[in-house]
Amino acid sequence: MKKIRWTTMAVVGVLLITGIAAGLRLAAHTETQAGTLRIYQGKTCKEVVLASFAEEPISGTLRNGKGEEQQIEGTGVLLSSLLRDAGVTAYDAVTVTADDAYSAVVYAEEIDAGDRVYLMPQDDGIRLLVFGDSNSKRSVTDVVSITVS
């Protein structure tokens, strides 16, 4: 009986700590409007609307870890154009982060390749597309921020 109380109390304890951590996370979380991105560079933060950038036609194939291919057709914004138009000129790498904190790093040579890295508006938010990867794990959905480093 004592052990049941101990186990239950321990579970209640971790639930409380989780509740506090959730409160801290939600308090620190910045809600982003649909189609909007925050660009962090050093200590500055700039909010941009994806629709305000020139869109280009996208056509390419993404391949997942199983080797399955997904044909992508539509319009989107080249990450290099977005960064240039947003006033970001010098960068080695860019970290693209989703609303759930999942992130992917895209390097300058990939961004500057021309037709490889896009941000595509979709119904469920902005999606990062990196063509040419053997595994599409950098295909981040619901992108909310870009951190330039």
């Binding site: 971790v14 989780t18 951590a21 959730a22 801290l24 996370r25 904190a101 999942y102």
Partner: peptide
């Protein structure tokens, strides 16, 4: 994921709670 700070704390807390 490479999470840090509060997000990592919450991620771990959720794992502990759901695990328990």
């Amino acid at each position: 994921f490479r999470l840090t700070g509060v997000i990592l704390l919450l991620y771990v807390c959720v794992s502990v709670t759901s695990g328990a």
